[in-house]
């Protein structure tokens, strides 16, 4: 009766071979990887030094103004400003800037790659059916799994963190760009065609602008995913708020964990609200 509970055979996957393959890929493509590393590092450094150059109170004022413009309520602006101020007040400002620069870099790369992919798969059902399972995989694969090859290919630090974060965060922008374009009212697209638009004209002048709100919602989601991932990425040496949380966990310092964790939450809320408000404004116009 034992056979009822046993699999008919055991498939041995040679995980070591996969490891070797990745390693040898890293070695063989050292030049390209080096180039990417340098490029990303340069991007991160410039974002970080720009953020670092701005005095803290200017950022606080900017957040206040944005919050006020968005909701037309002074109260909201003040709440946002106080939230941002409190991060600096507890001494986490420099770490927050590090986190923010990784988030900004990842979102920028996601947008740059994800938006065109989204547009392409919206035009082609075949491409869409190929890309979709890949997106599912990228989104559901445990996030730590990305960290391993990222380390192998790019070493430790913030560069692999950007890579891992981008893989995780690119999905919503691709998905929602695709969805938004496909959901544009069919008559509107027909109208564009009936006047003799080329495919590109219809896409640029009609479909993308009509899908704008959905695409922005995708960008907002991408931002949130990046924010979530960047904390995890501290495990491979990306310094920032996540690192602070990680250290607290390792040392079982509940208080420190709570403070840095709260800072992550505040940053996430601010990014979410400020980017979401923009989407709503656009939707109301439409």
């Amino acid at each position: 009766m034992n056979w009822l509970y046993q699999f008919p055979f055991k498939l041995n996957i040679d995980t070591a071979a996969i490891d070797d393959a990745v390693r040898s890929f890293a070695v063989n493509n050292e030049a390209i990887l080096q180039f990417m590393r340098r490029g990303l590092n340069g991007l991160l450094s410039s974002i970080h030094s720009t953020l670092d150059f701005i005095p803290w109170w200017i950022l606080v004022i900017v957040v206040f103004v944005l919050g006020f413009l968005q909701t037309k309520k002074i109260k909201t602006g003040i709440v946002y400003a106080v939230m941002l101020f409190s991060i600096g007040a507890v001494g986490l400002w420099p770490l927050m800037l590090l986190t923010l620069s990784i988030v900004i870099a990842s979102v920028a790369i996601s947008l740059l790659l994800g938006f065109p992919i989204g547009v392409l798969i919206s035009m082609n059902d075949r491409a869409s059916s190929i890309v979709r399972p890949i997106l599912d995989t990228m989104q559901t694969m445990p996030v730590f799994v990305y960290l391993i090859p990222a380390v192998l290919l790019f070493g430790l630090g913030r560069v692999p963190a950007v890579m891992a974060t981008t893989i995780y965060a690119i999905v919503p922008i691709v998905r929602l760009t695709n969805l938004g374009i496909r959901q544009v009212n069919e008559e509107v697209v027909e109208a564009a065609k009936s006047f003799g638009s080329t495919r590109i004209q219809a896409m640029v002048k009609v479909q993308i602008p009509q899908a704008f709100a959905t695409i922005m919602a995708g960008l907002n989601q991408t931002l949130m995913m990046a924010m979530a991932m960047v904390v995890t990425a501290s495990m491979i040496g990306a310094s920032g708020l996540g690192m602070e949380v990680l250290i607290s966990v390792n040392r079982v310092e509940v208080g420190r964990g709570l403070v840095s964790g709260t800072a992550v939450v505040i940053l996430a809320i601010l990014l979410d609200r400020l980017s979401q408000g923009w989407v709503k404004d656009k939707e109301e116009e439409a």
């Binding site: 009212n185 008559e187 509107v188 027909e190 109208a191 564009a192 065609k193 009936s194 006047f195 003799g196 002048k205 009609v206 602008p209 009509q210 704008f212 116009e285 439409a286």
Partner: peptide, 28 residues
């Protein structure tokens, strides 16, 4: 042919909500 000879009006108007009246009319 579509640009010069034939034009269409749609049941649910088929207007582009991101454009105003005159830019919609200009589209063709």
């Amino acid at each position: 042919f579509r640009r010069d000879n034939i034009a269409m009006v749609f049941q649910h108007f088929g207007l582009m909500s991101h454009r105003n009246v005159v830019t919609n009319v200009e589209y063709g």
